[in-house]
């Protein structure tokens, strides 16, 4: 009897079952949704406690947020976008990720060449780093550009413009076919 149990145990306790290719994306989406819900719950809780102080703080935050948002992109921000993405067949981790012809160096060169530093940003010495998320389509074109981390409205706008103009990517591959992949790149605005 012991042998019977042992054989099952030996064979199955480290057994690995093959997961579908989309599994990792599905997991990231679940994790993000969970974190998003937890954050919402936590923010409801803090509203319930000490409302007068909270109201003052919130108003100040709201006003500064309007001026310039500098929150770091969290797992959540990136993957709240994932909700729609996964429905439309967009993945985050392909077998072979999309590549700009010539690699990241060539991509940076293209952006630097095409980017027009906004006039008023120059005048006011506004610098910053904008994170732009976009989809590389199966034909290598760039669609659905979104600002994930803002720096300043003027810079954000220019970052979106210059990223939208990129095309000719080598598309991502999944299971031997081209696929739509969401990518994120930083666009740096530096004066000095």
């Amino acid at each position: 009897m012991k042998d019977f149990d042992d054989i099952f145990k030996e064979r199955l306790e480290d057994f690995e079952m093959k997961l579908p290719a989309t599994d990792r994306n599905a997991f990231l989406k679940r994790k993000a949704a969970r974190e998003h819900a937890a954050k919402r719950r936590r923010s409801y809780l803090s509203l319930a406690v000490g409302i007068p102080a909270a109201a003052a703080i919130i108003m100040t935050l709201f006003m500064t947020t309007y001026m310039f948002t500098t929150y770091e992109p969290s797992f959540v921000d990136e993957f709240v976008v994932a909700e729609e993405d996964l429905e439309n067949g967009v993945v985050y981790a392909a077998d072979l990720m999309p590549e700009y012809p010539g690699g990241p160096v060539a991509m940076q060169a293209y952006l630097a060449k095409e980017m027009v530093y906004p006039e008023w940003a120059v005048k006011d010495s506004i610098q910053g780093r904008v994170l732009v998320s976009f989809i590389v389509e199966k034909d290598g074109s760039v669609t659905d550009p979104k600002v994930l981390k803002k720096a300043h409205p003027l810079l954000d706008e220019e970052a979106l413009r210059v990223v939208s103009g990129m095309s000719g990517w080598n598309p991502g591959m999944l299971n031997g076919d081209t696929c739509r992949v969401r990518m994120t790149i930083p666009v740096n605005f530096r004066l000095y």
């Binding site: 199955l12 480290d14 690995e16 079952m17 997961l19 599994d23 990792r24 997991f27």
Partner: peptide, 15 residues
């Protein structure tokens, strides 16, 4: 962590 253990834990859950 996910890369290393997901497949095994998946099998466990399937059991």
């Amino acid at each position: 962590l996910y890369a290393r253990y997901a497949a095994r834990l998946y099998a466990l859950c399937f059991r």
